[in-house]
Design a binder for these strands. Sequence first.
DNA 1: TTGAAAGCGTTACCAG
DNA 2: CTGGTAACGCTTTCAA
Lengths: 332, 332
Amino acid sequence: MKKRVSQRDIARRLGVNVSTVSRALNGLPGVSSELRQEIERLAMQQDYQPNPFAMSLRYDTTRTIGIIVPDLAFSHYAHIVKHIEAEAKKNGYMCIVTDSGDKYSHEVECVNQLLSKHVEGIVLCLSQETNDFAHIERLKERHIPVVLFDRVADVGCSTVSVNDVESGRQATLHLIDSGKRRIAFLGGPNKLKQTADRKHGYLEALRERGMNIRKDLVKCGNVSFNSGLSRTLELLDLPERPDAIIADHGLLAIASLQAIYSKGLRIPEDVAVIGFMSEWVSDISVPRITFVKQNLKEIGSKTFKLLLDQINGEQNIKHITVNARLNIKESA
Amino acid sequence: MKKRVSQRDIARRLGVNVSTVSRALNGLPGVSSELRQEIERLAMQQDYQPNPFAMSLRYDTTRTIGIIVPDLAFSHYAHIVKHIEAEAKKNGYMCIVTDSGDKYSHEVECVNQLLSKHVEGIVLCLSQETNDFAHIERLKERHIPVVLFDRVADVGCSTVSVNDVESGRQATLHLIDSGKRRIAFLGGPNKLKQTADRKHGYLEALRERGMNIRKDLVKCGNVSFNSGLSRTLELLDLPERPDAIIADHGLLAIASLQAIYSKGLRIPEDVAVIGFMSEWVSDISVPRITFVKQNLKEIGSKTFKLLLDQINGEQNIKHITVNARLNIKESA
DNA sequence: TTGAAAGCGTTACCAG
DNA sequence: CTGGTAACGCTTTCAA
């Protein structure tokens, strides 16, 4: 079992002191150039790598951040994680990625585990269940930088989110202006700010066009395929079924597509669909779903940058809004 | 800026020695029960957390593993990563996730960065470009446990992969037996063992049924949407166009679907499609693509378990094959 | 120009 | 039952 080579090993080998080796390897002054060269040569040859724990122990700096997402396997989150990771790598940071399974209790667990790894900061997309923020308060007390992204909340953290109200409004206006009259809103949990905002935009658009609001067309609930499926079926079974559906999440959009097909209805003629979802999923659905395009790369990189600023001492919290745009495809 | 509390802090506060605190907090004998209680109480109250770097420095054990995948945002890999992460968490390990962008040079980079983090082991899905394995040899020299998964190679590491030859054979037989006569194989790079194996199974099935092999129907190349699109279009432009396509990768399957649609052809009547892909993507495609179902959860958990065994001293390398099954949907 | 030693947080060993 | 101390790898300050 070959051991890793340390500065001490190199020092012993050359009959010099560790501190000299340290200075040489860090390019600090105070080493004769011959000795420096010899040290560098040996270090190279022996494949010396600094031990990150020694550093971390001294400076409590790990060059590692934590990521928490509701579902790592879902395209939307996977893309954001990919871009956060890419940006982090550019800046010399690595990412510990954790999956909360969209559950509050797991999210708390993830925070604890990341804390135990001494990550320098955490970026977090809230679970759909989260409406107690004690775990985030704890991070703030400890002065651990936190940035919320995608699903955010007002808890005194920096955030990166989409202009949800306006996007919801735009989507609804598009449907109204293409002649739809009974537009349903298929959302996540009411307590989620993201859902609340999108619904807000939806209602705003209806009022703006002088359309009356029908409560039975607003169905908020669990974000899951099955919940989306059954809620869409309920909508389609209404005496006056909706002629359009706005889905608050990619999973819900896909679910409603399948529900509509299963009833033998046509898209978009009988029921139009607009979803808040990733382009990738829209692209492979048939018909392609008209979607609210969120710039996932921008969300990812801005999120990391905000976190990095905080790690580097920035005190003020910032709220960044990434503008989403309606991307019109065949489904609406 | 509140500092983290250490054993030393607790010791000072109570006027005892650090070693006593250490024993108390670790439940070791040699502390009076009153003192122990007092120490535990204070530790709890001050929210003491052991510093992992001190441990790591002493034992060079980080309870962290590295994951390298070609594309974190692609459903197939994202699912596997999710399951690896879940299994790791169960066993007290965290995951540093990296994305090679399906590029050899980035893959090497990822290995180096993970090494610098002193991960206890690495699980790796090869990039499509990788056919030099020096970076993996280096890991073996350093006795860093490695497990290859999904895309594997014969480099003396443990592996977890799908029964690619047999799956390729089954898919082809299914097409032949449903009356298809000009079956194309749309694959990844020839040098990739995964592609080679699947193609092998494809050829085997053709021979088995006494069908002649047409080289122009075998199109291997880059794994990307655009490459899949253009290669499918080439196939469809052949004088005798194929009446079925087997796609070696989810991206290629999706691409061929779109290419076929763009030519105004029907699926599966004009051209049938079978893909090696995740159920999730099959589910949202229309028509749903008949796919080779790989148990991604099993791949993920077996991969981690194999790695954990090696971390715990297992010397023998193992090759695990996870059986995939053809899952017949509408596209074939 | 080089060496010696302290310190980061923890555990383990040896004294008392 | 408790205290002291060395060790892990590295940087930094002070002394030679």
